[in-house]
């Protein structure tokens, strides 16, 4: 069973999509609309997540004419029509099946062409994974909620503009959590996106490799954390 998550859509649209998925006899495979947890496809409106987990498909719900024609395959045009939604879900299921069969960890399935090994990731996901994020203020408490990993991510992002990959690497926080954090910021319009040229340069290699710095970083900070029982 494939799992579909809805994000940034009105209650009316959500109810409509749930009904279509539940009642349609034309879906070639079984689908379930989920509110939480992992999913295979995210169907998102204007205020939906800017990015999704690797391996998850993202379909954008857009106004007529809002999208460029070359990416029609990733777009569900308003008003939402059952036959169009069903066709996209069938294409998604085919792409996901092919993607998992190829079992390439870094590959991302594409709706438009289900032969994953030969096709690039959908533009939205590919772009957002390579875009750099930055914040202009310390995130509100409703986002942080005393979540240590989110606080750590905020500390790192407060100091630099980073892609989600770099954010994960520098913070030591799993990519999935980084994306959840960025989504939470995105929902409140608290994250700015820029091109790769806006990213901070990586630390100079002599600092990364310096024994003194490495010792200081892992030695002192680690020993302080141990002394505090962290």
């Amino acid at each position: 069973m494939w799992k579909l998550k809805l994000a940034g859509l009105s209650e009316t649209e959500q109810a409509l999509i749930r009904s279509i998925v539940r009642l349609s006899k034309d879906l070639e495979s079984s689908w379930q609309v989920v509110d939480q947890g992992a999913c295979d496809v995210v169907l998102c409106g204007t205020h939906g997540p800017a990015m999704v987990m690797p391996g998850v498909l993202r379909i954008r719900v857009a106004e007529p004419g809002e999208h460029s024609t070359e990416h029609m395959h990733d777009v569900l045009e308003r008003p939402i029509r059952a036959e169009r939604l069903i066709r996209l879900l069938c294409q998604s299921a085919a792409a996901l099946t092919q993607g998992r069969a190829s079992s390439t960890p870094s590959s991302t399935p594409s709706i438009s062409s289900p032969v994953v090994a030969e096709t690039p990731a959908p533009r939205a996901m590919h772009g957002s994974l390579h875009q750099v994020a930055s914040i202009g203020r310390w995130p509100p408490q409703v986002v942080l909620a005393k979540n240590r990993e989110f606080i750590r991510l905020a500390v790192v992002l407060a100091r630099a503009s980073l892609s989600v990959t770099e954010l994960s690497r520098l913070s030591g926080v799993p990519m999935e959590t980084c994306i959840s954090f960025l989504d939470a910021l995105e929902e409140r319009s608290l994250v700015r996106w820029g091109g790769a040229e806006d990213a901070i340069p990586p630390p100079p290699s002599h600092l990364q490799e310096s024994t003194e710095h490495r010792h200081f970083g892992s030695g002192l900070l680690g020993s302080i954390r141990r002394a505090l029982g962290i």
Binding site: R159, A160, L170, P203, L207, L221, R225
Partner: peptide, 11 residues
């Protein structure tokens, strides 16, 4: 310490 860690990484 997390801030300091990042300071160190950035030199």
């Amino acid at each position: 310490l997390a801030e300091l860690e990042f300071h160190i990484r950035k030199g």
